[in-house]
Design a protein around this nucleic acid. Structure first.
Length: 573
DNA sequence: GCCGTTTTCGGCCCGACTGTTTTCAGTCG
């Protein structure tokens, strides 16, 4: 049973308890524990096998620890089954519809025998919902609208699609006179790999002009709401974007509030409360109720005695305590990056020539660019066998003689075959500056098999970096089942680096695994997997993901100078 | 149910919006 399955059980328990009007703080405790479990960097099954205490997990105490263990050992939870048995069937499913919470779901299930979203739509359409006490026509209409939107709406959007959309909108709004402080908020600002909708905040001399410009953008498909300081629109693909024009004096607290995460804000308010202060989006109130306002986030956090907390780590994962002690790590910044470790050219399936890639790397000011075309082998277009690889390395050396600013390193992305052997001989690999190894096929192997396979590749003394370790494609392909703790352990033992693949649809490793690897002292290499010259600019997605994994410059290989990188590559096997 | 540089008991984040209501409950972020 995975962490996310366990978390779902506790979230469902919280909903069921809420339907029964149980103690709201108990309900919140279950939700907090679930959130904490969902964000764990390690599988609870692994922790159980290692004999670790679940009560070390924030928000998890005696009860949740025992229940988690029961779930892991038996696959069921008696208390949960009992709770469900006392409730109308299907009641939890109704809550998938926005606007239908536990109380509404329970009433509809109990009083109208609504058991599914389909039932819900019928009950809303035929007047039964409107006939209930404390509900009416408007409630029924809203539910009907939400059910239909729910059916056609894609849930979350990949950051790689949302971020360019936001930048386009902001570029247009920047041209509106008097618009200042344009900043994205929400999960996009925190660099989550997917976002639910887009939130943009700004101050403006003439808010209504800013709103008018926003709803008038050419990419707007539909205007959902338009007020004097806030508007919501639908972009292509049903992506919702909100613009909020806020007062300048409260911009800091408002941006902080709308950046979240929810859990970070809850924890921050609890922290403030212990100081006798009360937080809201409008500022910080003292015991007398006097509100102090903040024009920027740093002074808002500062008033609480906290260092500025970067948006990427605002997930209630210990950042508040560290900020209170001035002990937050300095996170990686774009200017720290000196090169890229995973790129393709037209020698295999890339689009650009070696020279074009070198020129693009120079334009970025890189000290080095590692060329890692695919190896020959199973299912990979135009992969290089040993002889072509040798020719490419010669060509690279020739280019290095003419270009001084960026050094090309000869590498390969060698395929890890289904049995864990590599697609190139040790002799061929030995001639190269950098070897990255990656799985590309047989992705549905069992966890044991896949783990053994990847660990075997890491064990090869010529392999330097494991690329896109889980092979996931966000929204399209689930990660391969892989015991990441074992992979990290292997990388630590043999001094290998793990890749943070910066392709926005990969972002692999993910933030939780990055933090786990970093905490274990494993080197990380951020790489774009570029298949064209302009893909080198995707590095920022890798940097954002590394920041979500708490990485600073020393945790990341490509912050090193060329000489240090070459020394690292010669490390003893 | 969880948790402790105010507590092992007594607290637990805050505000807006909506709809159905004579004062508030539910939902959301």
């Amino acid at each position: 049973m995975t962490n996310s399955e366990i978390a779902t059980v506790f979230l469902n328990m919280a909903d069921l308890l809420e339907m029964k009007n149980d103690n709201p703080f108990k309900i919140r405790a279950y939700r907090r524990a679930a959130e904490s479990i969902k964000q764990l960097p390690r599988e609870m099954s692994t922790m159980l096998a290692a004999g670790e205490d679940f009560r070390e997990i924030p928000g998890v105490g005696e009860a949740v620890a025992t229940k988690s263990e029961e779930l892991l050992r038996t696959g069921r939870l008696a208390a949960y089954e009992e709770l469900k048995a006392g409730m109308p069937p299907g009641v939890l499913d109704l809550m998938a519809v926005p606007g239908v919470g536990p109380k509404t779901a329970y009433r509809l299930a109990a009083e109208l025998d609504v058991r599914s979203v389909d039932d819900l739509e019928r009950a809303a359409a035929d007047g039964r919902i409107a006939s209930l006490t404390h509900m009416g026509e408007k409630t029924a209409e809203k539910i009907l609208r939400e059910v239909r939107a729910f059916r056609r709406k894609d849930r979350r959007y990949p950051l790689g699609a949302a971020l360019p959309a936001v930048e386009e909108i902001m570029a247009a709004l920047r041209k509106v006179p008097g618009v200042r402080n344009l900043t994205p908020a929400g999960s996009l600002r925190r660099f989550r790999e997917t976002v639910g909708d887009i939130d943009i905040m700004a101050t403006a001399a003439d808010p209504e002009a800013a709103i008018a410009a926003f709803v008038g953008l050419p990419q707007v498909v539909e205007v959902l709401a338009r007020g004097t300081t806030k508007a919501s629109v639908l972009l292509p693909g049903n992506l919702q974007a909100d613009l909020r024009i806020v007062a300048h004096e409260s911009f800091g607290s408002l941006l902080q509030h709308f950046t979240g995460s929810r859990d970070h804000n809850i924890a921050l308010r609890a922290f403030a409360q212990r100081m006798g202060l009360s937080l809201s989006e409008y500022g910080i109130a003292d015991a007398m109720g006097k509100i102090e306002t903040f024009t920027d986030e740093a002074s808002f956090y500062g008033r609480l005695g906290l260092a500025f907390i970067p948006p990427e780590v605002r997930e209630n994962q210990g950042e508040i305590d560290l900020a209170a002690h001035g002990a937050l790590p300095r996170l990686l910044e774009p200017g720290d990056v000196r090169g890229d470790f995973h790129t393709h050219t037209d020698w295999s399936d890339g689009q650009a020539t070696l020279e074009e890639m070198a020129a693009a790397a120079e334009a970025l000011g890189y000290e080095y660019l590692v060329v890692t075309d695919h190896s020959a082998g199973l299912g990979i277009a135009n992969g290089l066998a040993a002889d072509r690889l040798r020719s490419q390395a010669e060509r690279i050396r020739a280019i290095n003689r003419t270009r001084k600013r960026t050094r090309l390193l000869a590498g390969v992305e060698v395929n890890i075959k289904a049995d864990g052997r590599l697609a190139l001989s040790d002799e061929a690999l030995a001639e190269l500056d950098v070897v990255i190894a990656a799985v590309h096929s047989s992705l549905s192997q069992s966890e044991q098999k896949m783990t053994r396979r990847v660990v075997a590749a890491l064990e090869n003394p010529h392999v330097d970096i494991l690329a896109h370790p889980t092979c996931r494609l966000i929204g399209r392909r689930e990660p391969a089942s892989l015991d990441m703790a074992a992979v990290i352990e292997a990388a630590a033992r043999w001094g290998k680096a793990l890749e943070i693949n910066a392709m926005p649809d990969r972002l692999d490793l993910n933030a939780a695994h990055i933090r786990q690897a970093r905490d274990r002292g494993v080197m990380l290499a951020i790489a774009t997997d570029a298949h064209a010259a302009d893909h080198l600019s995707l590095m920022r997605f890798g940097i954002g993901t590394a920041r979500r994994g708490w990485c600073g410059p020393k945790d990341v290989l490509n912050t090193r100078r060329l000489g240090e990188v070459l020394a690292w590559l010669r490390r003893p096997a």
